[in-house]
Design a protein around this nucleic acid. Structure first.
Length: 423
RNA sequence: GGAGAGAUGGCUGAGCGGACGAAAGCGCCGGUCUCGAAAACCGGUAUACGGGCAACUGUAUCGUGGGUUCGAAUCCCACUCUCUCCGCCA
């Protein structure tokens, strides 16, 4: 949620920022409702002050054995009714304001390149050598099957399209990657591991920004009104909801492995082959709560933590800075990391690292107390570290040998227990 | 799922419908004392919104929502959550 104070103070700045994202501008309406609400609040406050004063006098008179005048009681009864009426108005207006605010995306930070979509993203750096084409590499959906690692048909039989299963060494490789990534982030990058609920309440989805706008992308259980998480970012964002943290607790750095559940409704028909885009996948997610003045620097470090995973796996990658038009809803600045997949010959997004500034903190009422000062909203950052299926694609396709076997990246071997996968 | 108990500030915990944003203790911050510290003593310690340059001031907040009343932490109703016991269960 963006700040209503900012909208009041500098609506033009907000307008420009929303325009850069290609958003419509509901500010005129919003400001109008806000003005109505504030006047209802002021009037209500004055009436309450009056009622408090008179009620106190009535009480004191009673103590002295004097009955209050009938018309005073009558008048206060009417004041009470007016107060109730104004309260209801205030509530209704607040709901309208919230509805609008909850639907507005975060404002891009100053350094974010202007642009309309994917094509305007900027490659900021790249690392590693794209494997040479000395032999034709088989895409992972073929190789995964011939090596007995991935079983597409049975996944579909059990759960439907866009589901898959992994067996034997494939399942082990997946598990090894999870363990290794978690260990790396905990022991070398200073994160604390958490395990999390995979289903959350509506409030939690509102807090992270997935609701109300993106209900279509989420799985929902009607009976208990629970939502399946599309990323660990959702439960972690809500871990410290309604808390005031002390300055010394920051930065709080969490890492978690969770399955992620996505309906992929918007992407119907796209990437249907293989495991690039599926309804359920594993992901290791990094998340930080930081003081506002540090969030820009911390984002750079967070991206490096994710890049470190790629470097240690020796997967060639590039880092993109997303333009204003391609930013996610909650993000003020985002870097994507893409690894090269030598079989399907494309760059695969394996991580998206975002600075959400105070957008999620405002929704979750998550503050900290700077030294000797009033509580302030924290800034939140999130980044994949990394998404599993696409890393597996890259390993199968880049580490593929001419004979069809796959060599396991050095760092993973202690975790897999094998060095090579052969047919 | 059944029965019972409960929900008050950072924590523990008082609170006959009016003097209660709320006792007391702990914690925390500042001060006195000390070479320094501890102890002791003194003082200060919620949040949000509105008004004011400011000192300050108004309003709201005692799990949530409704109701009764001139007036609700306190009375009534509903809900949520927590704990204990029973049942079921990986």
């Amino acid at each position: 949620m963006i700040s209503i104070e900012l909208i009041r103070r500098d609506p033009d700045q907000v307008r420009r920022a929303l325009a850069a994202r290609g958003e419509e501008d509901p500010l005129a309406q919003l400001l109008d409702i806000d003005a109505q609400r504030r006047s209802a609040q002021t009037e209500g406050g004055d009436l309450r002050a009056q009622r408090n004063r008179v009620s106190k006098e009535v009480g004191q008179a009673r103590q002295l054995g004097q009955e209050p005048a009938q018309e005073v009681v009558q008048e206060m009864r009417q004041v009470g009714e007016k107060i109730t009426e104004l309260e209801q108005q205030d509530q209704a207006l607040e709901e309208q304001i919230n509805e609008i605010l909850l639907g507005l995306p975060n404002l891009p930070l100053d350094g974010v390149p202007k642009g309309e979509g994917e094509e305007d993203n900027i490659v900021t750096r790249s690392w590693g050598e794209v494997p040479s084409l000395d032999f034709t590499r088989v895409p992972h959906w073929e190789l995964g099957e011939t090596l007995g690692l991935i079983d597409f048909q049975r996944g579909v039989k059990v759960a439907g399209s866009r589901f898959f299963t992994m067996t034997g060494m494939g399942a082990k490789l997946n598990r090894a990657l999870i363990s290794w990534m978690l260990d790396l982030h905990v022991s070398e990058h200073g994160y604390t591991e958490v395990t999390l609920p995979l289903m959350v309440k509506k409030e939690s989805m509102l807090g992270s920004g997935n609701l109300p706008k993106f209900a279509d992308n989420l799985y929902h259980d009607d009976e208990d009104d629970l939502w399946l998480i599309p990323t660990a970012e959702v439960p972690i964002t809500n871990l410290h909801r309604d808390e005031i943290l002390s300055a010394s607790q920051l930065p709080l750095k969490y890492v978690a492995h969770t399955p992620c559940f996505r309906r992929e409704k918007a992407a119907a028909g796209r990437d249907t082959r293989g495991i690039k885009r599926v309804h359920q996948f594993d992901k290791v997610e990094m998340y930080q709560l930081v003081a506002p003045e540090n969030s820009a620097d911390e984002l750079e470090k967070l991206v490096d933590n994710a890049e470190d995973v790629c470097r240690k796996l020796e997967l060639p990658y590039r880092v993109l800075q997303l333009c204003t038009g391609d930013l996610g809803f909650a993000s003020a600045m985002t870097y994507d990391i893409e690894v090269w997949a030598a079989g399907c010959q494309e760059w695969l997004e394996v991580s998206s690292c975002s600075n959400c500034t105070d957008f999620q903190a405002r929704r979750t009422n998550l503050r900290y107390r700077p030294q000797d000062s009033r509580p302030q909203l924290v800034h939140t950052l999130n980044g994949s570290g990394l998404a599993l299926p696409r890393v597996i694609i890259a390993i199968l396709e880049n580490y593929q040998q001419p004979d069809g076997s796959v060599v396991i990246p050095e760092v993973l071997r202690p975790y897999t227990g094998f060095d090579v996968i052969t047919a």
